[in-house]
């Protein structure tokens, strides 16, 4: 039985709509809505979580993200420059460092800082410092690769033009190459900050005083202390979006503003 192209298209659309409707009806029928509402959406019982969730949890999540990123950025820049160095041992070290910290779970590094270093060296740093070093180390490995790719994506002619105007190598780097590389690395860097924001949720593993709690810790505590299913975690998740979505929007704005000067 031959069908015309338009008949076939109509048929295909009908089938798609049919499957979609059946799937929705099946889910509605199968799910126990009372239990689901209790487990995920018991927002009315969350009163005791606030305002600490925001004043302490949100604040600490942002704070841990910023200090970890700052440390990771400085270290990442150093590693990127080492990776491009003419002195081979620098390149070897940077490569080994990057492969190591990119390849192991962040939680292991956190544990090493929280429990390993105090045993080995008697360090007794406050929790935020441990978080900053651990997450900063991990993110520096990713940041280094991003920065190196960004710096190398700036055409060689830019450096040549700068050098031929009498700029020393470091000046050409700072004034000509890095500002252009910045625009190239902006999107992957935004990703990195978003990943880091979420990784701060691992900080609970080190144990902390109440004033050091971040959002996931509040969510976890809420599960046991409030009779609200996992709704506290749902709320924690929503608050992560409160941080990460504006970050994406700002990055997109910066990107489109600099699009003109990017060829």
């Amino acid at each position: 039985m031959a069908m015309t192209t338009s008949q076939r298209a109509r048929m295909s659309k009908t089938i798609q709509i049919g499957i979609f409707v059946i799937a929705i009806v099946a889910v509605i029928a199968a799910v126990d809505w009372d239990k689901t509402a209790y487990a995920f959406f018991s927002f009315d019982k969350l009163g005791p979580m606030f305002p600490d969730m925001i004043l302490i949890g949100l604040k600490n999540t942002i704070f841990y993200t910023i200090i970890s990123f700052a440390f990771g950025l400085v270290l990442g820049l150093i590693l990127a420059l080492m990776k491009m160095a003419s002195f081979a041992p620098y390149r070897w070290f940077a490569t080994a460092f990057i492969e190591f910290f990119r390849g192991i779970p962040a939680i292991l590094v956190l544990l090493a800082f929280g429990f390993g270093l105090p045993q080995a060296f008697g360090t007794n740093w406050p929790q935020p410092v441990n978080v900053m070093f651990a997450l900063g180390l991990v993110s520096s490995a990713y940041i280094a690769e991003t920065l190196r790719a960004g710096l190398q994506a700036v055409p060689k002619g830019q450096t040549e033009a700068a050098r031929s105007l009498g700029m020393p190598a470091w000046r050409a780097m700072v004034t000509i190459v890095i500002p252009q590389a910045f625009k190239i690395v902006l999107p992957p860097m935004t990703n990195e900050i978003i990943l880091l924001t979420k990784d701060t949720s691992l900080a609970f593993i080190l144990g902390a005083s109440f004033a050091q709690y971040e959002m996931t810790k509040f969510g976890r505590d809420g599960i046991s202390s409030l009779d609200a299913g996992i709704t506290p975690l749902v709320v924690a998740g929503l608050f992560y979006l409160v941080i990460t979505i504006p970050l994406s929007l700002v990055a997109r704005k910066l990107e489109s503003r600099s699009a003109r000067t990017q060829r």
């Binding site: 033009a161 031929s164 000067t261």
Partner: peptide, 14 residues
């Protein structure tokens, strides 16, 4: 003291 002009201009786009 030595000016240079390139085939691809190499102006600083930023």
């Amino acid at each position: 003291n030595v000016g240079m002009v390139f085939q691809q201009f190499n102006l600083f786009p930023h």
